[in-house]
Design a protein around this nucleic acid. Structure first.
Length: 135
DNA sequence: CGTTTGACTACGC
DNA sequence: CGCGTAGCCAAAC
């Protein structure tokens, strides 16, 4: 089932969701986090303040895997500042190869390329809840 | 082990 | 729209 009382279970859930993002689409840290309910024992209100950052941590740990990490960007439509040198350029190149277009300000339009999220039955099949807005 | 840092985001000016 | 900050935990030092 689903007991994310520790990151060893939280992170794989993040990665599993990221795998569902189709090529040519992007999601955000917060959007992915909103699909994962608060871990047991964590105050939901406090969880809402840190969950997006947890997703960022999970993504950082996903380097060197087959996870399509490039499809996760920040809520403003920009590529975040990756810890690895040259990571941003690489991420942009990967996304552009998939068909994602950046505007003159290096921003992605979520209206065009934003991922609508997985089907609800997929979420429920994995013991997750439908996405909830922040706060 | 204590300290610092961080692939975040909403909100207030 | 830009800039600063609070929120507060897991990794990384």
């Amino acid at each position: 089932m689903f007991t994310p009382s520790n990151p060893q279970t939280f992170n794989p859930i993040v990665w599993q969701i990221v795998r569902q993002i189709p090529p040519g689409k992007v999601s955000t840290y917060g959007q992915i986090a909103s699909m994962i309910p608060p871990p047991d024992g964590v105050d939901p209100l406090r969880y809402a303040h840190v969950r997006a950052r947890w997703v960022g941590t999970a993504m950082r740990l996903s380097v060197g895997t087959d996870i399509p990490w490039q499809r996760v960007i920040n809520s403003r439509g920009f590529i975040s500042n990756l810890p690895q040198p040259g990571g941003r350029e690489r991420q942009r190149l990967l996304l552009e190869t998939e068909g994602v277009v950046f505007d003159e300000n290096e921003r992605v339009d979520f209206k065009l390329f934003g991922w609508e999220g997985p089907p609800q039955d997929w979420l429920q099949a994995h013991g997750l809840l439908p996405p909830r807005p922040l706060k």
